[in-house]
Amino acid sequence: MIEVTAGWYLSLAAVLFSIGLLGILVRRNALIMFMCVELMLNAVNLTFVAAGRALGNLEGQVAVFFVLVVAAAEVVVGLAIIVAIFRRRESASVDELASLRG
């Protein structure tokens, strides 16, 4: 029987975070990109919880609440912006947002 240590959780979180980051880079739909950001934040939460438990202090568990609140605030602003864009263009693809060239 393999014992599941904190390292496993940290590795899982790293994988989730990488999937989120990769999603941002390859997907072109603003909503999906936004969900990838949420995936990254949840990977952060998993890291906090696993580290907090392994270290035996509560700071990591409490940190999750703050990250959740911030994520919720980002959802409010992000969805509002996406809706405003969708009303004008009937599409949420960021490829069509190219009047400003980076």
Partner: peptide, 29 residues
């Protein structure tokens, strides 16, 4: 163009925030 600036700032800014807070989590770990 203002809308476009907002969505670009928002998406890249929230990725940056996520990267920063992941750094915080790993520093804590």
């Amino acid at each position: 163009r203002s809308e476009e600036a907002a969505i670009k700032y928002f998406l890249l800014g929230s990725v940056a925030s996520a990267v920063f807070i992941y750094g915080v989590a790993l520093t804590y770990a």
